[in-house]
Design a protein around this nucleic acid. Structure first.
Lengths: 224, 224
DNA sequence: GAATTATTTAACAATATTGTTAATGACTTT
DNA sequence: AAAGTCATTAACAATATTGTTAAATAATTC
């Protein structure tokens, strides 16, 4: 490629390196670590695969760079969830909604993460160090909030851990199973009938509303 | 191996072929199609990998045999679900429970199926022909049942498709996320802390109870 | 513009994987 | 036990994949 000198006079950005990163993110998210070959990434970036080894030493190094990038975005997304002050249900609903929406903004992240943990757990060890403190904080915040509300008798008896599992499971599997469903229902030779933007938005809105309704009935529904 | 002649005098069973099938099922379920190498299967079966090609022509042929075997078991498991005569909630609860329990009896099936559909959708085309009529029948049965009950006003307003999605999602992801959680929470060098039989049984019983409680509150819970 | 440095390429190496084949050994039938 | 069939092995072939390297090209610095 070429030296992509910027207007501001500071150090220039190598657009080959950026092209590789972009291609790598795309391919890793789509295929998972094992099926994402360096040759395919190079092809998508429009360079020879030797370039990947020139800029990043190994396939694993590129992967880690990509992972770190996505994780930064993940943490960014979750920050506003923890702002306090609102009543219990509003806060919880906001939490569910934010969690749901994060995956809408990163539709391949659920499958990618799942695939990596399943097939390359060794790559997740470093990931854990980044992600665990954040997860722990969010988790503790919600568990405490639910327990407090339950003790006051304003919501039904429920194991807070199970409720969190319900929410995470329902939100995650929406995006975990969406591409699976897409592939499952396509016909033999035909390409997957990817729903258009508007349709997909509608599907996701309905799904989110149903998940919130489920949790609301679980917490507030009285059975005669 | 050896010719494993049986007592009943009929044609003998080749135990090499059976060993390969058993090993293949184990390895495919654990690793998925792409990461399950013929060499590894052969090693686990205690034979050279040329044997796989002798008994089954290709890797894909073995895979199909394994898939067919599991699918037969799947259909078997779902048969009793459809027996009618009981009241609505008892039938639905039995359906949820059966669905949940199938994955308990085939704990790797969810991840395996997911992996196959994600990374080898072409292998699922044949699968679809076997599995779809069965799924369709179960699906129609439950949709009809829910719609009827809702029209009579005995349960809350709900989109029957969303309710089915809730149940499938909650049941499936219990087993989809269980091995992921296992790997997620293990420490760097240590092996995964697989919970012992009794503990696992307790976890699963609690989870099933919570899922049933969720659906019950969704259908019967009244919000003032 | 000469020297130096950075980028890119093509060819090679090493390994893994699926599949084939020719030779060998074992078992069955008559 | 001779002939034929079945089971097994070891070696080979073909391809794919990750990674290296020496040489060529482009950019930068002095």
């Amino acid at each position: 490629m070429f030296q992509d000198t910027q207007d501001n006079g500071t150090a220039s950005v190598k657009s080959t390196e950026q092209a590789i990163m972009d291609a790598a993110e795309e391919v890793f998210l789509e295929k998972g670590y094992n099926l994402a070959t360096t040759t395919l990434i190079a092809k998508k970036a429009g360079v020879t695969h030797a370039m990947l080894h020139y800029y990043f030493r190994t396939k694993e190094h590129i992967f880690m760079k990509v992972l770190e990038k996505i994780l930064r975005e993940l943490m960014q997304s979750f920050r506003p969830v923890m702002s306090k002050g609102e009543p219990f249900w509003e806060t919880l609903e906001k939490g569910i909604s934010t969690h749901f929406d994060f995956f809408a903004g990163h539709p391949r992240f659920a499958t990618f993460l799942y695939d990596t943990i399943m097939h390359n757990p060794e790559l997740v060890v470093r990931l854990k160090e980044n992600i665990f403190p954040v997860l722990q904080k969010i988790y503790d915040f919600h568990i405490g909030m639910i327990r407090e509300e339950m003790d006051s008798g304003r919501i039904n008896e429920v194991d807070p851990m199970q409720l969190i599992a319900d929410i995470v499971t329902l939100n995650l599997s929406t995006y975990l199973l969406l591409p699976v469903a897409g592939r499952m229902f396509q016909n033999a030779g035909n390409p997957a009938p990817v729903p258009d933007e508007t349709t997909l938005k509608g599907i996701l809105e309905n799904r989110k509303a149903e998940i919130i309704a489920l949790i609301r009935h679980r917490l507030y529904g009285k059975i005669q």
